[in-house]
Amino acid sequence: MTKRDVLRTLAEARPHRLDPSRVPPLPDLPALQALARPRARRPRGLALGAATAAVAAAGVALAVLTTGGENPTQPVPPPPVAGSSAAPIGNLLLLAAERALAEPPATGRYWRTQTETGETRHLAAYDVTIRMAMDDWRAAAGGGVSVGRYLGADPVDEAAWRAAGAPTSWRDGDVTIEKAPGGQFTRALPANAGFMLAGRPVTAADLAGLPTEAGALRGELVRRYGEKSLFDAAEQLVLDLPAPPAVRAAAFRVLAGIDGVAVAGPATDRSGRTGTAVVYRRQGDAGWSETRLIIDPQTGRALAEESWHEGKMLGYTLVVSAGWTDENPPAK
């Protein structure tokens, strides 16, 4: 695979849906190696197959390859979720809806998202978190510019890492993952690259045309994507897609009405920002998994998404900023 192929794969990747039951394996180990080595001139995100291909406007997709504990055959029972009654979840999400609705509609030439995405995988005898930063400029009609930077990899258990000799790189099959950060690249996005909602392409106009009443929006999302994808679709609308304020407000209200969604209480994202975590738990053949959406109720903005399995964080997406702008993107 050439560097051009690697970057094209990155441009089509999206950091969503990290639940282990739905993430395909990495098909492209040489592409991962290009990311992992900081001496490479243009590091890239972890390559995923077509099942998770989407726009880079939301960041780089990070596949989850491992969930293991010391004994993965023994399921970990899910802990109780605080605030699981209807009133707290409704109060939080309805407040976020009101904050979103109060925002004036915005326009611009580019939908710009600045994100950090991380993946945790089991390397050697301990877990390592691999991180990537993206600054994406997506034109409303398609195309744009993507800027990516490899942020390095860090052991989750520092004591275990030091006991192993504090290595500065790890082998994963034929791939070397470096601890040190890498360089930066800038590339043009294809003109036909749009946005993705629940795994399907949409345009900014499609998003603007979604219903602004919660019941109607829920019905439309179920019709398009199915009941099982309702949470995913509504969450993406409030996380980092260019949905107008009224649509985002309706999406918050949809989330408030989904069975299994609960408030987990105050939370801090990986960058130190504080908010309130809303969780959605699923039980599958591989055990229970959980998506956590950290919301700032004062602004009605989603700060981060985290994916957990059996009590262990597998991946995260930090939304540093997302909005329309008339500024010029970096030169390609």
Rank of each mutant, 00 (worst) to 15 (best):
P104F: 10
G183D: 11
P88H: 08
E305T: 14
V202S: 00
R109T: 15
Q33Y: 07
D269T: 13
L217F: 12
N91V: 14
E235T: 07
R44V: 14
L48M: 15
A204D: 04
N91S: 12
G275M: 04
L46C: 11
M132D: 01
R281K: 09
L123P: 05
L151D: 05
R41I: 02
G287Y: 06
A11E: 10
P15T: 10
A31H: 07
A54Y: 02
V238N: 08
L189A: 02
R138M: 13
L237K: 02
R37N: 14
R224Y: 04
S321R: 13
D5H: 13
G45N: 07
W324V: 07
R270M: 05
G260F: 07
T66P: 03
D127Y: 11
R17V: 13
F195A: 00
V128E: 01
A193M: 09
V64F: 08
G143V: 04
G69V: 12
P245I: 15
T168W: 00
R44K: 00
S289A: 09
A124S: 05
R8A: 07
L48K: 06
R301C: 08
P30L: 01
S169R: 12
P330T: 14
S321W: 06
G300C: 01
L93Q: 11
G209D: 12
D135N: 09
